[in-house]
Design a protein around this nucleic acid. Structure first.
Lengths: 141, 141
DNA sequence: GTAGCCCCTATAGTGACTAGAGGTTCAAGA
DNA sequence: TCTTGAACCTCTAGTCACTATAGGGGCTAC
């Protein structure tokens, strides 16, 4: 029911040194060790690390992930704190979805034009070039 | 109708050294210079840099952005090349949208529970913890 | 023409990993 | 039980994508 860092790495597809790095910076709690100082993990670690992996792939930085995980780790903390973090992340997530939808539409158009034998004009830049749409980085206030 | 690197930085909200860095690695073409070797930009540069900024915020790495921009820069290149790049990026974009939708739903649920006065149980980890859903990195083949 | 802000290049530092060196532990088989 | 080799340990250094600093030169307003 518990396993090594290598097994955790295989299950999550996160590299072993990255797992140790996450522990070092406090994203993963220090796990129990064997007599010989080797780390032993359980299913909770798989879930937590899987979440971190996903969130990183989605472009959240470590501090944002730390904030989201703190919701999980302190379910009893004041509602207002959790609410503020969740709302800020929610706004960021919604903006990202909107931008990705626009980019998807343009990529789809290009693929379709290709399929119909025409050389695609590429307008990805116009699709995503507007810098005045409030896409700045969100910060907890 | 043309302006300095500082003005480009203000218009795009990209920092001056970052603009020079993008030029150095070939994401931005070298612009014309004044007699005194200062860079001058036009509206095209604003659009291209705005696109790059957005794409970085969405988590695309430099090589992915380079590939997408190459569609724009070589509209006459073979359809099969453009198609391959566009399809790979499209798949990646769709996976990201799906993950973000799941995360959004969970964050919304938490915000709603907070609004109703209950302390939120946080289940963000369960929402996004599954690492066996094919979220690996896509690569051009 | 000179003050002051902006630009130049070049180098070094940061965040988030990733790889390597050099040594130790664990478990499977003899 | 003993051995052996894969997997583990710590520590340091390197990579990618910036970001900041140093030291100097250009440009416009008075």
């Amino acid at each position: 029911m518990d396993f090594s860092i290598g097994e955790l790495a295989r299950r999550t597809e996160v590299k072993v040194p990255t797992i140790r790095y996450y522990e070092q910076i406090g994203l993963l709690p220090p796990p129990p060790r064997t007599e010989g100082q080797q780390r032993r993990y359980d299913k909770n670690a798989v879930a937590r690390l899987g979440f971190i992996k996903h969130a990183r792939e989605l472009g959240f930085d470590i501090e944002a992930i730390r904030a989201i995980l703190s919701l999980q780790d302190n379910p009893d903390q004041s509602c207002s704190v959790a609410d503020r973090i969740a709302k800020a992340r929610l706004a960021e997530v919604e903006e990202r979805i909107a931008s990705l939808n626009a980019l998807r539409a343009e990529l789809q158009r290009m693929v379709e034009e290709c399929a119909s034998g025409r050389v695609a004009e590429c307008r990805v830049i116009e699709t995503l070039a507007d810098s005045s749409n409030g896409h700045g980085r969100l910060v907890e206030t």
